[in-house]
Computed example of a mutant assay.
Amino acid sequence: MHQESKIREIFQEGPILPEQVAASLQAHQHKKQIGAHSMFMGQVRADQTPQGIVAGIEYTTYRDMALEQMHQIREEIFAKFGLTCMHVHHSLGWVPAGAISLFVFTSSPHRKAAIEACAELVERIKKELPVWGKEVLEGEGHQWKSNN
């Protein structure tokens, strides 16, 4: 089962590409003890705000703190749900509206654990990681996004 306890990099510059999602799924086909995968993909919305339409989000983080916190969350989720695998990819920098900025992928022998772990993992990432999004508006202007 879960053997890694090292801090893993989760951040990448720019959006998560569809090819990355496909590659993650492809890489797990040889792991025949897995019976279920659950995935979450967070997409940047072109929200209409009182200040204008969101063109995209500029993500920043306090990387060392975020990676340490993610490591703790990872260990707790693995222990609670008995997962086989867990992968988290979070964008930094510019992500235009319509692109994916968060990809969470959990795997386990049975569907309930994979689904529940994925849902809890997403909620904890949004609440606990020091990641900030500055919504850049079409034309000029920006506003800080709340994590909800």
Rank of each mutant, 00 (worst) to 15 (best):
M1N: 09
H2T: 12
Q3S: 13
I7Q: 14
I7H: 10
I10E: 02
F11C: 03
E13Q: 14
P15Y: 07
L17K: 02
V21T: 07
V21L: 12
A22G: 15
A22E: 15
A23Q: 13
A23M: 12
A23W: 13
A27Q: 13
A27G: 11
A27H: 11
H28W: 14
Q29H: 12
Q29F: 14
Q29S: 08
K31H: 13
K32D: 12
K32Y: 12
Q33S: 15
A36L: 11
H37R: 01
H37S: 00
S38K: 01
M39D: 05
M39T: 06
M41I: 12
G42W: 11
Q43C: 13
V44N: 01
R45M: 07
A46T: 08
Q48D: 10
Q48R: 04
T49I: 03
T49N: 00
Q51C: 08
G52Q: 02
G52T: 03
I53T: 05
V54E: 03
A55G: 09
I57R: 08
I57E: 00
T60F: 09
T60C: 08
T60W: 05
R63W: 02
R63K: 00
M65H: 01
Q69C: 11
M70D: 06
Q72W: 08
Q72G: 08
R74A: 00
E75D: 07
E75Q: 12
E76W: 01
E76G: 05
I77E: 02
I77Q: 00
F81T: 04
F81E: 07
G82W: 04
L83K: 00
L83I: 06
C85E: 14
M86Y: 06
V88T: 03
H90F: 04
S91V: 12
L92P: 13
G93L: 10
W94L: 05
V95S: 00
A97E: 09
A97R: 08
G98A: 03
A99T: 12
A99V: 10
F103Y: 08
F105I: 03
F105V: 00
T106M: 02
S107R: 00
R111H: 02
K112D: 14
A114F: 10
I115Y: 15
E116F: 08
A117G: 07
A117H: 04
C118S: 10
C118T: 04
A119M: 14
V122M: 03
V122T: 06
E123G: 10
R124L: 07
R124C: 07
K126S: 03
K127H: 04
K127G: 10
L129C: 00
V131L: 06
G133L: 12
K134D: 07
E135F: 08
E135S: 09
V136L: 10
L137Q: 02
L137V: 04
E138N: 04
G139Y: 09
G139T: 05
E140I: 13
H142E: 15
Q143T: 07
K145M: 10
K145R: 07
S146W: 15
N147I: 09
N147Q: 15
N147L: 12
N147M: 14
N148T: 12
N148I: 13
